[in-house]
């Protein structure tokens, strides 16, 4: 397994895709953090602290996209053929890719959180004590989002369609679910992850952090299982 992990890490390191993803994530986090710091009196309460810390949740989107690319990028470029020749047991490939995507995601989340802290603690007097549950939630949510992305990447036929599907879902699909049923929408993937990253022990609009975390785990496992099933049956 370690040989396979090394191979998957090499694939990530030898193209710039993931560097660009990281840079995009960093840029958005920095811009958001600076604008919060610049608006004086932004932080007045513990819930304000949490809202500011949630800037780091930007890394979740990029973790999801990273997971999709780790898995579906090989289909897009056709390298999946050679990957399968070297490792014909497809379950092992999906496992290795999930681990690598999760590692990347933890990196994205850590960098985002450190940047938020570095900019908003001195600039807007962010209180880490109030924000730490948010940071913890994001550190857990990021690898889960990446694993979900790997699962989605196993279903779609190209990384582009995987990214498009997930963005359309987050921007439109989630709202449609909310319109249909407010109580059910709490369990939708976007809101489950948001709850995990909320830092709120019990939410009103969202689930509480632990319930949201549980729902996020269920979504990630469901997606990666389905992605694996599709990938196992796929003709390459």
């Amino acid at each position: 397994m370690s040989a396979l992990l090394r191979s998957e890490l090499l694939k990530v390191r030898t193209v710039r895709t993931f560097l660009w993803l990281a840079l995009a994530s960093v840029a958005l986090v920095v811009i958001a953090s600076i604008s919060v710091s610049a608006s004086t009196g932004a932080i007045g309460s513990a819930s304000d602290d949490r809202s500011v810390a949630q800037i780091a949740a930007i890394a979740l989107i990029f973790s999801l996209i990273g997971g999709i690319i780790v898995m579906a990028g090989e289909v897009t470029h056709g390298t999946v053929t050679q990957t399968l020749l070297a490792t014909p047991v497809r379950e092992r490939i999906v496992l290795a890719k999930a681990v690598v995507a999760a590692l990347i995601a933890i990196g994205f989340a850590l960098v985002a959180e450190l940047l938020v802290l570095a900019i908003t603690v001195p600039g807007a007097s962010l209180d880490f004590h109030n924000a730490r549950l948010v940071f913890l939630g994001i550190l857990i949510a990021a690898p889960l989002a990446a694993v979900l992305g790997v699962g989605l990447g196993g279903v779609v036929k190209s990384q582009g369609s995987g990214i498009a599907v997930s963005l359309v879902w987050l921007l439109i699909g989630e709202h449609i679910v909310l319109l249909i049923s407010e109580s059910a929408s709490k369990y939708s993937p976007g809101r489950a992850f948001a709850a995990l990253a909320s830092g709120e022990r019990s939410g009103h609009v969202l689930l509480g952090m632990s319930a949201g975390g549980l729902a996020s785990v269920v979504w990630a496992v469901a997606f990666v299982s389905f992605g694996l099933l599709v990938f196992l049956r796929r003709d390459v």
Binding site: L10, K11, T83
Partner: peptide, 10 residues
């Protein structure tokens, strides 16, 4: 690098 990734897996 393509070959390196293959060699690692194999």
């Amino acid at each position: 690098n393509h070959l390196r990734a293959l060699a690692a897996a194999g």
